[in-house]
């Protein structure tokens, strides 16, 4: 084996090690983002279910959705729980992130439309998140959307 071959082999081993480290870091980052998303959705879903009558009452006050308030009041927390389950199970993380992104985008569109067109802004999002102003709420959602997109990008580049 000549000197050149040894050098090439060495660089391959180093690159492989670097690559493995990169993958490990990506894995940890994806896991951290997923855990954050699980916490957010389970926390808000439980808050909505624990004080369901209050959440339902709040939805009745929103003109455009008041006719479907009863169904929405159950559908939203159940969808949040389902997405959290998808994120918990390692095999369905990708689907979980996509559904998390979709649901949160839908919530953000709802908030933005409320900010633009509604006279009154009732928020019944559950728990301490209700204490945020509507603009802060939009930024909060956008941060989570960015995190989910980043996690999906990392998942794609992961070998």
């Amino acid at each position: 084996m000549n000197k050149h071959n040894i050098l090439v082999m060495g660089s391959i081993i180093i690159n492989k090690q670097r690559f493995q480290l990169e993958n490990k870091g990506k894995d940890r980052l994806i896991l951290a983002i997923c855990l954050l998303c699980i916490f957010l959705f389970l926390y808000t879903a439980c808050a909505k279910l624990i004080d369901h009558s209050r959440f339902l009452n709040g939805l009745y006050h929103v003109k455009i959705i008041s006719h479907f308030a009863f169904y929405i009041s159950w559908l939203v927390p159940l969808a949040e729980i389902l997405v959290a389950i998808l994120l918990i199970v390692p095999r369905t993380v990708k689907w979980g992130l996509y559904s998390f992104l979709g649901l949160l985008t839908l919530f953000t569109i709802y908030i933005l439309s409320m900010l633009l067109w509604a006279d009154k802004l009732p928020c019944h999002c559950g728990g301490v998140i209700e204490k945020l102003s509507w603009t802060q709420h939009v930024w909060f959602n956008l941060t989570f959307i960015a995190l989910a997109i980043q996690a999906l990008r990392l998942l794609k580049t992961k070998k």
């Binding site: 699980i38 389970l42 926390y43 439980c46 994120l87």
Partner: peptide, 15 residues
């Protein structure tokens, strides 16, 4: 999975 379940339990109890 265990980590996810732990965080889930934390979220529920915190809520």
């Amino acid at each position: 999975l265990v980590l996810g379940l732990m965080v889930g339990a934390m979220a529920i109890s915190f809520s």
